[in-house]
Design a protein around this nucleic acid. Structure first.
Ligand SMILES: [Mn+2]
Ligand SMILES: [Mn+2]
Ligand SMILES: [Mn+2]
Ligand SMILES: [Mn+2]
Lengths: 223, 223
DNA sequence: AATATTTTTTAGATTAATCTAAAAATAGTA
DNA sequence: TACTATTTTTAGATTAATCTAAAAAATATT
């Protein structure tokens, strides 16, 4: 069967993400939520994906769906493209990290291996995208990095911001305002029991109060 | 009606090109040939385009089709995007001019005004694409340039290569081999009546024989 | 002008990707 | 365990974009 369609690719990516984060098969409803479609549409798509040659998903009725090796390969390549384009938009076209997701969501479907190879090279083979997420290489290998949420950082231990868990535009814009960009140095000075808020030292200069919600969505790496 | 689709955009562009080059309404068959579809499909598409609000084409049965003002605007913007992406691919990603068309054919459909503005800026607001074709500005204005085919150049008059009429990969690759790239200096030393071939001087150094067919598809501008 | 050829349109079908509504299966709870 | 609620699948429709075959209109040729 023909070249893979945009809808098919987006479904594969949704399934990949869901299976990665829970280690369980992806449920029809969860996929529909990501795809902003209905469960019935997802069921139809799953049937189509599993009927491909080679099959892209394994699926037993009512038991959820997982990617096959072939499906995983396609999904990984899509994520590679998505993150490289995001990096291009931020690094070369001066977009800010909260603006790039939707555009990359379209660019990722351009089919030309050579284009991605060249883009990767042009960008200097980056290992992480503007949100701190790892960019798989052409073979599909992700760079693993020991990172923890800011809520898990021990008091007074110095660390740098390396990524976000929530990459919604509103959160990213808020982080911009707080100067909590990738590479910023942070240290937790105090954790307030009363409301879970955290007093932090930013870049060795500035004291700041962060809510628990912010800290739960910010990845840091200790120095 | 909804955002314009890729198929609709490609049809508009085909109609624009046909009307530009002949100054007559575009025929169903000619459009089908460019789109690599069948006449019946084109008829259906024309009906859809003319039914849009605002209408994108004017059409009377059996009399061909022309773009409306709105249609022309969309087509021009699409050409702008196509040529900017081609320029990006050649200038930044080191593709050669014969490789970029098909990739740009996909990239042109990414919908994000800001992306194109930024890309244009990143490229230094180029006026011509890698094939010498003018890139319309954001308002849709093309830069006009007095250019002639190499067949029309008077003998011994110096000129530079500024574009191609035929931009097929095979022709472009052949030109690469002959070193007849954009900016090359040419002078016609002799026109051979026998076979219509032309003896030219390239970059003030090298003598070369060019067939009439090559000269008919190469634009130059006198110095 | 009559006829033949070519072009365009219409009619009817197909496929991908979605939907809604209803049925069936699974999971949660008293 | 039996009932209820949730999730998933099936059935049937819809829309965009294409196709083939046939009819109709325009054009070209005796
Ligand atoms: Mn996408
Ligand atoms: Mn990202
Ligand atoms: Mn296109
Ligand atoms: Mn071009």
């Amino acid at each position: 069967m023909n070249p893979i369609s945009k809808a098919e690719e987006n479904h594969l990516k949704a399934i990949f993400t869901l299976c990665e984060e829970s280690d369980k098969p992806a449920s029809t409803n969860a996929i529909a939520k990501i795809m902003k479609t209905k469960a019935a549409s997802v069921t139809a798509m799953i049937i189509r994906l599993s009927g491909k040659e080679p099959s892209l998903v394994n699926h037993q009725k009512h038991k959820g769906v997982r990617l096959t090796k072939a499906g995983k390969k396609l999904a990984t390549n899509l994520i590679r493209k998505h993150r490289l384009w995001e990096t291009f938009l931020v690094e070369k076209l001066n977009f800010s990290w909260d603006e790039v997701h939707d555009i990359a969501e379209e660019l990722e479907h351009i089919k030309a291996e050579k284009l991605i190879d060249r883009l990767d090279e042009f960008l200097g083979r980056p290992k992480f995208d503007p949100h701190g997420d790892p960019i798989p290489d052409a073979e599909g290998n992700f760079t693993y990095r020991k990172q923890i949420l800011l809520t898990e950082l021990v008091k007074n231990q110095a660390a740098v911001v390396v990524g976000v868990l929530d990459d919604s535009p509103s959160f990213l814009q808020y982080l911009n305002k707080l100067n909590l960009v990738l590479g910023a140095k942070v240290q937790v000075l105090e954790r307030v029991d009363y409301d879970g808020s955290n007093r932090i030292l930013l870049n060795d200069q500035q004291e700041q109060i962060l809510t628990n919600k912010v800290c739960q969505n910010l990845y840091v790496k200790t120095l």
